[in-house]
Amino acid sequence: MTSKQKGWKEIPIAGVCWTPTTEYLTGDWRTFKPVPDLQKCNKCLLCYVYCPDGAIEWKREAEKIEFNYNYCKGCGICANECRQEAIKMVRE
C-alpha cells in the first residue's frame, strides 16, 4: 500500500472508524444537478424529508433550503416530489 496510509500501530483496534463520511464527497457521482427556484419554493421541506443523502439543508436564519452539492448524487427524487415544481434537474 502507499506510504500515506497508516500502519497497524497508528490505527484504532477492532476496525473502529476514525473518519466521518462528511469527508467523503459523493457530489461527483452526479450527472444531473437539482437547481431550486426559491421563488416557487413554499418551504414545505418535503425535498429534505425525501432526500436519501441529507444533501438538502434547511437554513433556519435565511428561511430557505440549500443544496449541498458536495454530497448530492443527483438522483432527482426532490425534483420528482416537489409539488411546486420548484426544482429542476439540469445536466452538469
Binding site: 462528511t22 467523503y24 459523493t26 432526500c51 443523502d53 458536495n70 454530497y71
Partner: peptide, 17 residues
Amino acid sequence: MPGHRACAGCGPAVVYR
C-alpha cells in the same frame, strides 16, 4: 451523515434518515 455511499435514489437511505 451525508457522504455515505448508497446508490443515487436509494430507498433504504431515505428510510434510515
